[in-house]
């Protein structure tokens, strides 16, 4: 489903991704692990199309379409969803208003009919109950004054409503207590389907106890250094990232 070939990305003079290759198949849950500052968040932003990164080489294909040619909203409607590490606060825009605008925008660009209001409210209610999100919260402005846990749950709610093909979870576990972590993970697990893929970015094993990955990739210094099965995550938890960092330096 997702295929990244020889991706080089820099910010200003600094090269961050240095020839990254990655494949994620439909139905697969892939975890990317690595120490801070290795470009994990850069990777997620570049897939989603954030400004400010210059892509000097390489391609990102989603089902054969090069995402790099598309503006962010068309990447979204073609199925890319990024759960932000730091969801953005937008004062004045109510959550419900935003959710509806996003759903309809994606539907429109796929040539589908807009969702009607009763149907929309019903879907939001169903999904938000699963995630233990209070209706009161959805009337407040988007992410404004939300706690860390509330923000992350709202990200997962959006994921559930938008039904993306590829979901990228950028450090979704950071700032979550154990109960919130469970709720969020259950939310993610319930969305697993053979035609969907997940890319989970984290630097702790913890999240992977709840969302079982099919593949684990170790990222360091702008590249995938090693790929393997779930056992690789446990190995990392024991030995840390030392090996990969020094290998690269040598």
């Amino acid at each position: 489903m997702l295929e990244i070939n020889d991706l080089h990305v820099s910010v200003g003079d600094r090269q961050i991704l240095k020839g990254l290759n990655l494949k994620v198949a439909a139905g697969e849950v892939a975890a990317i692990m690595g120490p801070n500052g290795t470009g994990k968040s850069t990777l997620s932003y570049v897939i989603a199309g954030r400004e400010g990164y210059s892509i000097t080489q390489g391609e990102i294909l989603l089902n054969g379409v090069n995402l790099l040619d598309l503006p962010p909203h068309l990447r979204a409607s073609s199925g890319v969803f990024l759960a932000f590490q730091y969801p953005v606060e937008i004062p004045g825009v109510a959550c419900m208003q935003f959710l509806k605008a996003a759903m309809n925008a994606q539907r429109r660009s796929r040539g589908e009919d807009e969702i009607n209001t009763p149907e929309f409210i019903k879907r939001v209610r169903e999904e938000s109950e699963k995630l233990k999100i209070h209706q009161e919260m959805l009337r407040r402005p988007l992410n404004s004054g939300f706690s860390g846990g509330e923000k992350k749950r709202l990200e997962i709610l959006q994921m559930a409503l938008l039904q993306p093909k590829l979901s990228i979870l950028d450090e979704t576990d950071s700032g979550l207590d154990i109960d919130a972590l469970k709720t969020v993970s259950e939310g993610v697990n319930s969305l697993r389907r053979p035609d969907r893929a997940f890319l989970i970015i984290t630097h702790y094993q913890r999240l992977l106890d709840y969302i079982k990955p099919d593949t684990v990739h170790v990222m360091a210094q702008g590249r995938i250094q090693k790929s393997g099965g779930p056992e690789l995550a446990l190995e990392l938890e024991k030995h840390g990232y030392q090996d990969y960092v020094s290998n690269e330096a040598a």
Binding site: A48, G49, R50, E51, P71, P72, H73, L74, R75, A76, S77, V80, F81, L82, F84, P87, V88, I90, P91, G92, V93, Q97, F98, A101, A102, M103, A105, Q106, S109, P141, Q158, L162
Partner: peptide, 22 residues
């Protein structure tokens, strides 16, 4: 904020309008 809205599927004009209205 603009990128966040666009990453959820709104095109630039829609995202701008929503932000400006808010």
């Amino acid at each position: 904020q603009l990128f966040y809205l666009m990453s959820r599927g709104l095109n630039e004009q829609e995202a701008m309008s929503l932000l400006i209205e808010a």
